[in-house]
Simulated assay, not measured.
Amino acid sequence: MMHSLRYLSLASLIGLLATGQGHAQAGATASLQTGPATVSVAPPLPAVLKAVVSAPAFSPDSVFINPEVRPQFVGGDKAFAAYLAKSIRYPQVALQRRISGKVYVNFILSAQGKVTDAHVISGPGNGLNDEALRLVWLMPPWEPARVNGQPVRVACTIPIAFSADR
Rank of each mutant, 00 (worst) to 15 (best):
D130W: 00
A94I: 08
L84I: 14
P91Y: 04
K86C: 01
K86Y: 08
A85W: 09
A79H: 01
G123Q: 06
R70D: 11
F107K: 14
L133N: 02
L138Y: 00
I99W: 10
V136H: 10
A79M: 03
I65Q: 13
V105L: 07
A118Y: 12
Y83S: 01
Y90K: 09
S87N: 12
L133D: 11
L109F: 03
N129Y: 00
F107T: 09
V136K: 03
D130L: 03
V74N: 10
E131H: 01
A118S: 14
Y104I: 09
N129P: 04
P71I: 10
A94E: 13
D117G: 15
L109N: 02
D117V: 11
P124L: 12
V105A: 01
L133H: 00
P124W: 07
A85G: 07
V115I: 13
G101D: 10
G113T: 02
L109V: 00
L109S: 04
A111Y: 00
I88S: 06
I121H: 15
H119N: 11
N129Q: 07
G101I: 03
G123Y: 06
V136R: 13
K102C: 11
L84R: 13
L95W: 14
N66V: 09
V136W: 08
I88W: 02
F80N: 05
V63A: 09
A79V: 05
Y90R: 02
D77I: 07
N129C: 05
I65Y: 15
